[in-house]
Design a binder for these strands. Structure first.
Length: 593
RNA sequence: GGGGAUGUAGCUCAAUCGGUUAGAGCGCCGCCCUGUCACGGCGGAGGUUACGGGUUCGAGUCCCGCCAUCCUCGCCA
């Protein structure tokens, strides 16, 4: 062992170590210098230990210590000593003791850092772009290290849980074939086949289905997935999924497995017990009550459909909307009447604009007062109708009733947007990062209409099995076909999604046809899958969990970059390495580009 | 591609209605200090106000353009 190597970490020393001789390795967290004495706080990922260097120690020791700065990497040899009485630091786990340096070696210097690595309470962090540029420094911060450790705990929990249930971890290719549908692919040119391209996987979907055909039975993989689409606070171009697939199962088997896994994850990562089974909500009900297929159930503000009431309300705007087949739906923002001024609510006002900017025609509103309703439109309603509305919405004085009329799907979307906006504005979203409201959204429609291309597209993906009873109407009543698909939603984040797959080659070919993929093309692009389905494919299904989002939720951050060691920025650039970057002409030539 | 926000010292921010030499805290440098721990005291350095135009007697501030960063819609089977 080299002379400078540590014998203990910076988080280890306690009163029981008094008098022992130790060597510490770490980074200078902070420095407090006198002309006869220097205090150094030495930091590693385990903690911080105070080191004292005194001038009377003689030798060059003091001068070396005096010359060090923040973020220098040091080795310190010395004795563990009790701090002077009354000088203990209760903030530090090692605060009862300090190390008196007998020898100090500079392992590496550091110039003045471009931003302060040490986090102080109440102090703003440096801008994210400069922290991403020097990500290796940013990752020295305990809070980011904590997120990486949380992610590690999550991965380890998953592996041990699934291993204990006879799942097999199998790696699938990164270099694959581009398939139609889905996200934009990242492409990799082939050198040996000029003009031909690999695609990086959007998910290991087809490989895992083929593993079922092979009899692997229970598969999982912590798999990197790549999608060349625009980024968001919770979306990166490369991200990680826990990919799971099982044979001889039905929907409930998958949901139960993931619920059991979630219990383990919350237990081992946060020491929390979550209640299972999770609530299940049909897609239709989720859209009706929350205006979203990934509702945040941490707060109320449920949507109520009052179309039948609106038709006879006497308010012309509503009655005409209902006559045109539109829906009228409402949110009772309980107690919020005083939180929004009439100016904000009126056309052109801030809250009204939330609806109009999303393409809505307008926002109708009523403030509930003792024995009356105000808002300017109250005079248009027939006698007793406002009282009837109030009864349906459970209105009490001080409540604010918000109504939107539009085509049913649009009304759902508008009120969903309004609901999340209200929750943020009214401070209804718990700030403690310890409230978790998971649910399953089930019974998704199999298909959505793509108006641009004038054809049906798969809502989930083209391998999702329709409900058995709906298979007969695949072609005749496509819109009403429901899928055996399910999404796991936690606190408004889509944290996972999966389905029972089609294992009947005939059904698969019919589904391709509905999507506008002629048999010839289906054979050319998915021949391997169709062949596999013909050769004794078992019934199977699975799910993929977005592990970055799980890590976000467990770490209590709304920023996906906080849980990825080396993330891309919003323009998909790596500010540290500068990727993507031009390449040598020679490289391009070799690739025939 | 659309909408929104931001860009001033190494970092975080301020600068009133367009008006003097663009300020503060932290950091950095120097000196002083043997019990500090977000040490303290004294002194100092540090600015193309992202960039390019324009309006004006005068622009950090107003206008146009452009770049960057973040949020968002579209997009993400």
């Amino acid at each position: 062992m080299a002379d400078w190597q540590r014998t203990v970490t910076c988080g280890a020393l306690r009163a029981e170590h008094l008098g022992t001789s130790v060597t510490l390795n770490g980074w200078v967290n902070s420095r407090r210098a006198y002309n006869q004495q220097v205090f150094l706080d030495l930091r590693d990922r385990y903690g911080v230990t105070q080191v004292v260097i005194e001038a009377d120690a003689g030798s060059p020791l003091f001068d070396i210590a005096d010359g060090t700065g923040r973020e220098w990497c040091l080795s310190v040899k010395g004795e563990v000593r009790r701090r002077l009485p009354g000088k203990e630091n209760a903030e530090l786990a090692t605060g009862a003791v300090e190390v008196v340096a007998r020898h100090l070696e500079v392992l590496n210097k550091c110039p003045t850092p471009p931003f302060e690595v040490t986090e102080f309470p109440g102090e703003e962090l440096a801008g994210e772009d400069i922290r991403l540029q020097y990500r290796f420094l940013d990752l020295r911060r305990p809070s980011l290290q904590k997120a990486l450790l949380m992610r590690n705990r999550l991965n380890q929990t998953i592996r041990s849980f699934l291993d204990g249930r006879s799942f097999v971890e199998v790696e699938t290719p990164l270099l694959g074939r581009s398939t139609p549908e889905g996200a934009r692919d990242y492409l990799v040119p082939s050198r040996v086949h000029p003009g031909s391209w690999y695609a990086l996987p959007q998910s290991p979907q087809l490989y895992k289905q083929l593993l079922m055909v092979s009899g692997i039975d229970r598969y999982y993989q912590i798999a990197r997935c790549l999608r060349d689409e625009d980024l968001r606070a919770d979306r990166q171009p490369e991200f990680t999924q826990l990919d799971v697939e099982m044979s001889f199962v039905d929907q409930d088997d998958i949901l139960k497995l993931i619920e059991d896994l979630a219990v383990e994850v919350f237990r081992s990562c946060l020491g929390m017990e979550v209640t299972v089974p999770f609530p299940r909500l049909s897609y239709d009900e989720a859209m009706l009550r929350y205006g979203s297929d990934k509702p945040d159930l941490r707060y109320g503000l449920e949507i109520t459909d009052v179309t039948d009431w609106a038709g006879g309300s006497g308010f012309k705007v509503f009655q005409e909307a209902v006559a045109a087949g539109h829906a009228v739906r409402a949110i009772n923002a309980t107690g919020a009447a005083g939180r929004f001024s009439n100016t904000e609510l009126k056309p052109g006002g801030k809250l009204s604009e939330v609806v109009t900017r999303a393409g809505g025609k307008g926002l109708a509103w009523l403030k509930v007062e003792e024995g009356k309703y105000t808002g300017g439109i109250e005079k248009f309603f027939a006698a007793g109708m406002l009282e009837e509305l109030g009864r349906r919405l459970g209105a009490k004085p001080g409540d604010l009733l918000l109504l939107v009329a539009d085509a049913p799907d649009k009304a759902a979307e508008l009120l969903g947007g309004l609901r999340t906006h209200l929750a943020a504005q009214l401070g209804l979203v718990p700030a403690d990062a310890k409230t978790f409201k998971p649910l399953w959204v089930v019974d998704f429609p199999s298909f959505m209409r793509d108006d641009e291309e004038g054809r049906w597209v798969a809502n989930h993906h083209p391998f999702t099995a329709p409900r058995v009873a709906d298979i007969a109407k695949l072609e005749s009543d496509t819109a009403s076909v429901k899928a055996r698909a399910y999404d796991l939603v936690i606190n408004g984040y889509e944290c996972g999604g999966g389905s029972i797959r089609i294992h009947d080659p005939v059904v698969q070919e019919r589904l391709f046809a509905v999507l506008g993929l002629p048999a010839e093309q289906a054979r050319e692009k998915f021949g391997f899958l169709l062949d596999a389905l013909k050769m004794g494919a078992p019934p199977h299904g699975g799910i993929a969990l977005g592990l970055d989002r799980w890590a976000m939720i467990l770490s209590g951050t709304a920023n996906i970059r906080d849980v990825i060691a080396f993330p891309k920025n919003q323009r998909a650039r790596d500010l540290m390495t500068g990727a993507p970057a031009p390449v040598d002409a020679r490289q391009l030539k070799e690739l025939g580009l």
